[in-house]
Simulated assay, not measured.
Amino acid sequence: MLTRVLSWCLFGLGSTGALAAMKSEAVAYRLGYTDMAGVLVFDDATDTKRPGLLMVPNWYGVNDGQVEKAKAIAGSKYVIFIADVYGTSVRPTNNEEAGKAAGGMYQDRSVLRQRARAALDAFKGKATDAPIDLNRLGAIGFCFGGATVLELARDGIELAGIASFHGNLGADPKWPVTSIKTPILAMNGADDTYVPAEQISAFTNEMQGAGADFQFVNFGGAVHCFAEPDANSPGCLYNERAAKRGFQMMNNFFDDAFAKH
């Protein structure tokens, strides 16, 4: 169901391909003493090099649903690497476990940033096995993953672009930002109670102060999780209209960003 819904949302937006040709491959990597396992996703019907997107999933981390989402987004347009920022020993199965895992990462943004960078390095390391154009790399994230890719930007990463879907916008004052080198597209639900107006204002001021090339978009009538097809709870609910527009904006954003590289 997840793949069908996402495929419909992305149909005609330039991202879908023959899903039967989609390949997913587990990729083991390590940071310090932490073992991690991401997933590489791409259409192997052609060996034409294409842009790569690091995808940081929501607070549930790497799971089958996120692989299906990556397949639908990748199509024949992108190679996607699903990042594992928790480590192989942490695979949440319910909201309580997911909240604990994500909360631990928020407590130490330096570890979160290191693990996101480790995933990016693992992704780059697969360029000999997958048709990744290393000159055209970006990052996307959903919910907790959206917050994580924003942390990459705050950490000074240089990519073609970063797109956040309904991610937390709050910054940790222990890690002040002086400059941001990667263009940002931050998409938010206008009725998202998890992202209050004060957080949006602080984010805008932070981006302007850091000289960022950024866009912030509010989707009317949408709440948190609007781009998650399986989200169906108060305050965290899929919104077909916002999701379709969000993926269209994401594709347009990266089309423009990659054209400059």
Rank of each mutant, 00 (worst) to 15 (best):
Y60D: 00
N135H: 08
V62Q: 01
I184Q: 11
A197I: 06
A119M: 02
H224Y: 00
L53I: 06
G104Q: 09
T204N: 14
A190Y: 03
F203H: 12
F247C: 10
G103N: 11
Y86K: 01
A72L: 02
N239R: 09
T48H: 08
G87L: 02
D64Q: 13
F226Q: 05
L53T: 05
K69C: 08
A139G: 01
C236V: 06
G52Q: 06
P51C: 11
G220C: 11
G209W: 07
A147N: 15
L6C: 14
L10R: 15
E240S: 12
N168M: 08
M36V: 08
G141R: 00
L237K: 10
G211F: 13
A197M: 08
G145N: 09
A171V: 06
S110K: 11
F247S: 06
Y29V: 03
R154I: 07
M36S: 08
N239K: 08
V149P: 10
D256M: 04
T48A: 14
V56R: 03
I157H: 01
L150D: 05
G99S: 15
G170W: 02
G12D: 09
M105V: 03
M250P: 06
T182G: 07
F123C: 07
M105C: 11
A83R: 00
F254I: 06
Q248N: 11
L19T: 14
D35K: 10
F42T: 06
E198P: 04
D44M: 14
V217C: 09
D35S: 12
S233R: 15
A231R: 04
L40M: 14
G220N: 13
C236F: 05
V149R: 01
L2M: 12
L237D: 05
D192A: 05
A186R: 06
L2F: 05
N188E: 09
S201D: 14
V195Y: 04
Q114R: 12
A231L: 03
S201Y: 10
L2A: 11
K49Y: 14
N205K: 14
P183C: 08
T48Y: 02
D35N: 13
A21N: 15
V177I: 13
P183R: 01
T128V: 15
K71N: 04
H261Y: 07
